[in-house]
Every structure is written in structure tokens, then in C-alpha cells.
Design a binder for these strands. Structure first.
Length: 372
DNA sequence: AACGCGGGGCA
DNA sequence: TGCCCAGCGTT
């Protein structure tokens, strides 16, 4: 069997398999380009089961591009809370506004135009064009590279930029006439359900017969992928600053900077401390770092007792955080200013915290504190 | 080409 | 508990 026959076999059998076995997912119930676009952005680096409830809430609150374009950014961020990579949400809203203004409220249907939108790279562009408009463009994500690397025994490192190009060219050649949307979704569906990273379910695979990796017994060795660097550790100490008097039952929160990690999300005031400060014996030293740093922000605190320990792993950083309860130390606040706070600080209680978007690590601490 | 950017699932 | 899952923007 030559290469062209193997390609033809793959395309035909994968398409037929998908049409029979496709999961009934919320974003597969319409061809609304805007809804498909939302789902594809949410699905970047995020699994289907996680995305489903977010997709429902998001499309219910912002059913049209007009609704999303006109919404305050904080509300968009709040609906994205817990999903991670928050620039995806801001880019999506910015791109939708762009579509409203420049494309008359219609998601562009050409590769050139759609690729100019913020947050729309080669994968998302191909996915939206093929699924919403049935245009024969490849949509190469991690699933697709895994499937293709195995079936065609491609041993290039999939983390390399050039490998993407090889995969895209191949994926485009494989698209059956008039069936780009179903074929591309089938490729990803196979990667998610059958051709899994570990212990692939080859016996149920529609293209096992001609899978090169399977023939060589190499399905577990592919794709070849350079390992990511391990996250660097950071030691942090966070303050649960408890209000008193009018602020009884409230906790002080702080908004993060406009740019960078967790941009514009809300958090507990905290500081990074040098290695060694965060262990049991070092806690007193790290508390003084916290007190001094917050004093510079005109927040005077009197440290109380340890509340909990929290760990959180990002792709590139590991946070090891001690959380201590504190009370306010009014003497640090300049006299005459009363309870005036910097504008990026805010008191919240168990009800009003719902209005602010927090990264999961702080959400968990606050939920525990308020017994939610 | 290398790095920054979140969060969750599985053995 | 340690391993895995990865698109897009920026530099």
C-alpha cells in the first residue's frame, strides 16, 4: 500500500468513524461561528469536561457578539474565573469588538482576515473556518499532532516550530472534499477518545490497520516531545486582613497589575519571600517582610496566626504560600485619612466577593475562610 | 527560537 | 504524589 492509499484510507475511515461516534457537545449543536469560536478559545489547553459548564454560562450571559462587545471586562473575567490563561478572555472580547466594528458583526470567513484577530492563531483560525464555514483549512492541535505522528510515524519533535508546518501541510491534504469540519473534529475526537497520550485504545481505532506506529509497536513512544522545564519554586506569604467595626466580617483584597501573571485579577495581599523563609521556623521572618511591604502600600497590619498553607502550580512557577490572619494597624495609616485605601484595594465579605474574579488559589482560601 | 501564561486529570 | 495534558502573544 503506497502513501496515497494510506492517506485515503485514513481520511475515509476517520470521517465515517466520527460521524458515528461523535460526542454530543454543546458547541456541536449549532454552526454559530461566534459560539464555535468561544468553544475553541476555551478548549485551548483545557479539557472538554472543564469547558462545558463555562461554555454554558458564557453563551447564556453573552449570547451574541454584541452582548460580549458591550460587557464590562470585569464581568467577562468573572465568567472566565477558574479557567486560567485569562488573556484568552480579554483577547476574545477585544477581537469580538473588532469584528463588530470592522466586519459588520460577522466572523470573517477567510484565513487572512480571521488570523488578524487577537487570540486567533493558526489552530483557532483553522478550527473556526472548518467547523463553522466548512472551509478546507487544517486545525492542528496537540491531539492532531499525536494522531498524525503515530499513523504516519513522524518522529520530529512536536514542540519544534517547524514540525507544526509539516503537520499542517499533511492535515490539509487529508481533508476529504466538502467535509472539512467533520474531518477536523474527527481528528481531534480520535486523539481525545482513542489515540490518547498514554495507553491508546488501538483495538477500537478506525485506522489501526494502517497505523505505522502500531505496526512498529511504537504507539507509546510517539509523539516525540521535548520535556518542558520544571516550574521554579516561589515562596510567598499572604494576609487575610480581617476588618473590624464597619468592616466586621470583611477581608481586604487587592487587584493585580494590568499586565503579566493573572493580570487584573483580585487576590489576597501577599509578598514573595526568600527561600527558607516559608518553612515552619522561618514564618516569623517572612511575616516581617509582609508587614513592611504592605506598610509601603499604606496598609498597616498586625499579624495574627497561621490560617493555612496553600500550594499552586502554574506551568512555569510553583507557589508555596503561607496564609496568616491579620488585623489592621491604624497607626500606620496617615492621620486624618481615616479608612482611605489605595484604589486597587477593596473590602469584601462572603457575599460581595462574588463580584470579583480570583485565581483559583485565592478562591480556595477565601471559600475556606468564609466556610463556603 | 525561547519564554510567559493556569489549571486539572490520571496512574 | 509525581507525571502528563499545550495554543498564542511577545521578545
Amino acid at each position: 500500500m503506497d502513501t496515497n492509499e494510506k492517506k485515503q484510507f485514513f481520511s475515509e475511515h476517520l470521517l465515517a468513524w466520527y460521524r458515528k461516534h461523535r460526542r454530543d457537545l454543546p458547541w456541536r449543536r449549532s454552526r454559530n461561528p461566534y459560539h464555535i469560536w468561544i468553544s475553541e478559545v476555551m478548549l485551548q489547553q483545557t479539557r472538554v469536561d472543564t469547558v462545558i459548564p463555562y461554555f454554558h454560562r458564557f453563551t447564556e450571559r453573552f449570547p451574541t457578539m454584541e452582548a460580549l462587545a458591550n460587557a464590562p471586562e470585569e464581568e467577562v473575567l468573572k465568567l472566565w474565573e477558574g479557567l486560567g490563561y485569562y488573556s484568552r478572555a480579554r483577547n476574545l472580547q477585544g477581537a469580538v469588538r473588532e469584528v463588530q466594528e470592522r466586519y459588520g458583526g460577522v466572523v470573517p470567513d477567510t484565513l487572512k482576515e480571521i488570523s488578524t484577530l487577537k487570540g486567533v492563531g493558526p489552530y483557532t483560525a483553522g478550527a473556526v473556518l472548518s467547523i463553522a464555514y466548512n472551509k478546507p483549512e487544517p486545525a492542528v492541535d496537540g491531539n492532531v499532532m499525536r494522531v498524525l505522528s503515530r499513523y504516519f510515524l513522524i518522529e520530529e519533535d512536536i514542540m519544534k516550530i517547524g514540525t507544526r508546518g509539516i503537520m499542517e501541510k499533511l492535515a490539509k491534504e487529508l481533508i476529504p472534499e466538502g467535509a472539512a469540519g467533520d474531518f477536523n473534529q474527527g481528528l481531534m475526537e480520535l486523539g481525545a477518545m482513542v489515540c490518547t497520550p498514554r495507553s491508546p485504545h488501538c483495538l477500537t481505532c478506525p485506522v489501526m490497520e494502517h497505523c505505522a506506529a502500531r505496526e512498529m509497536g511504537m504507539e507509546e513512544e510517539l509523539p516525540v516531545k521535548k520535556k518542558a522545564k520544571p516550574p521554579r519554586p516561589e515562596y510567598r506569604i499572604a494576609a487575610l486582613i480581617e476588618g473590624s467595626g464597619p468592616q466586621e466580617g470583611h477581608i481586604l483584597i487587592r487587584q493585580r497589575p494590568q499586565e503579566g501573571l493573572l493580570a487584573r485579577m483580585w487576590e489576597l495581599p501577599h509578598v514573595e519571600v526568600p527561600f527558607g523563609y516559608a518553612d515552619a521556623s522561618g514564618v516569623p521572618a517572612s511575616i516581617s517582610v509582609l508587614t513592611e511591604q504592605l506598610a509601603l502600600e499604606t496598609i498597616g497590619i498586625r499579624p495574627g496566626q497561621g490560617f493555612m498553607h496553600a500550594e499552586h502550580t502554574f506551568s512555569h512557577i510553583h507557589w508555596d504560600m503561607q496564609v496568616v490572619t491579620c488585623s489592621l494597624e491604624p497607626s500606620v495609616v496617615p492621620s486624618g485619612t481615616g479608612m482611605l485605601l489605595p484604589s486597587h484595594y477593596q473590602w469584601v465579605n462572603r457575599d460581595t466577593m462574588e463580584q470579583y474574579a480570583f485565581p483559583n488559589v485565592f478562591l480556595k482560601i477565601l471559600k475556606r475562610y468564609f466556610s463556603l
